[in-house]
């Protein structure tokens, strides 16, 4: 303390000229700060401000027009009502299942689709195509395909003598069925990302492995797999963010039902909003925010760190 005091006292006259110079530079800079302005206004008003406001309104009983501060009541409600709290568990389950399957299937598809086979271009387009169909379109289509009595899936199963379950009507199964459809629709992106990664591997690595007598499985295990780390990071992060926030598909396929068995946080937020419980809805949003941040940020840090170590 005693050491720093004199120094701070001594500084004022000196930095005077540098700041003056940078200020003049700023005026002349070919990259003016006001280029940020249009983006900053839109982003600040419609994204940053509502995000901060949500932390306050989550603590209120709120009807758009006036709000009454009620402390943590909304969160107490959220964590004590099983049908609300379950949406948190479902969100986690859903995100983990979808991103896990996307990693595994995406990698398998990518290895297959970058090997020497006929009709490779066609196959790649077909796998990618569902990505372009809206979640609503996919949801309605699979709602029909998964119909317990007349749906195509159960008809086919009946043809082989299997009594198909009620994919979307069985409370134990509904969430998993939707997750499965999510993977169906989204695995194309994961596959593409992995293909881009595989293509970037120098051919010499595979040749060297071959010279050393590595089998196809071994060269996959020891060459492809370790080099796929950056791609895997991307796939995991992207699909986790997507999975945790998922709404449209669940809403069109089950509406959170039967009962509350496939409710996730995003659908709970919408339901409470519709019911007019704006404070509770916003509290759900805050829980979602915390959940996404608590999972994605450490994961991001962890996965990127491992990369540096290698």
């Amino acid at each position: 303390m005693t050491d720093t005091l004199p120094r701070t006292q001594a500084t004022p006259p000196e930095p005077e000229s540098p700041t003056a110079r940078t200020r003049r530079d700023k005026k002349r800079s070919p990259y003016p700060m006001w280029f940020y302005l249009p983006a900053a206004i839109i982003y600040g008003v419609l994204f940053v401000a509502p995000t901060f406001a949500s932390f306050y309104f989550a603590l209120t009983r709120w009807t758009i027009f006036d709000s009454e501060f009620i402390g943590l009541d909304n969160f107490v409600t959220f964590f004590s009502e099983p049908y609300l709290f379950q949406s948190l568990i479902h969100t986690l389950l859903y995100a983990v299942i979808t991103s896990g399957l996307k990693v595994v299937l995406g990698l398998l598809f990518a290895v297959f689709l970058s090997s020497q086979i006929i009709a490779r271009g066609y196959l790649r387009s077909v796998v990618f195509f569902p990505v372009l169909v809206s979640a609503v379109g996919v949801g309605v289509t699979f709602r029909v395909l998964m119909d317990p009595f007349d749906g195509l899936i159960n008809n086919v199963l009946a043809g082989v003598g299997i009594d198909g379950p009620g994919w979307l009507t069985d409370p134990d199964l509904a969430l998993f069925s939707v997750a499965f459809v999510d993977v169906w629709a989204g695995v194309g992106i994961a596959t593409l990302i992995y293909i881009a990664g595989i293509v970037a591997i120098p051919q010499e690595y595979f040749e060297a492995a071959k010279v050393d007598g590595a089998s196809a499985v071994k060269s996959f295990r020891h060459v492809t797999l370790p080099l796929m780390r950056p791609a895997t990071t991307t796939v995991i992060i992207l699909s986790l963010i997507g999975g945790l926030r998922s709404f449209a598909l669940i809403w069109t396929m089950t509406g959170g039902g039967p009962g509350f068995s496939s409710d996730v946080l995003a659908s709970m937020v919408y339901k409470q909003y519709q019911a007019g419980f704006y404070g509770l809805s916003t509290a759900g949003n805050v829980v979602l925010f915390v959940l996404v941040a608590a999972i994605v940020i450490p994961l991001f840090w962890f996965l990127n760190r491992k990369e540096v170590d290698r």
Partner: peptide, 30 residues
């Protein structure tokens, strides 16, 4: 192009935009 002391803050905002789920009802309110 421009290295300024705002850059880390702006980069942070960009990453936040990718990760943070939008707060629905407050957005309606705004």
């Amino acid at each position: 192009r421009r290295k300024s002391r705002w850059n880390p803050f702006i980069n942070f905002l960009v990453l936040a935009g990718l990760i943070v789920p939008p707060a629905v009802v407050p957005t309606i309110w705004v």
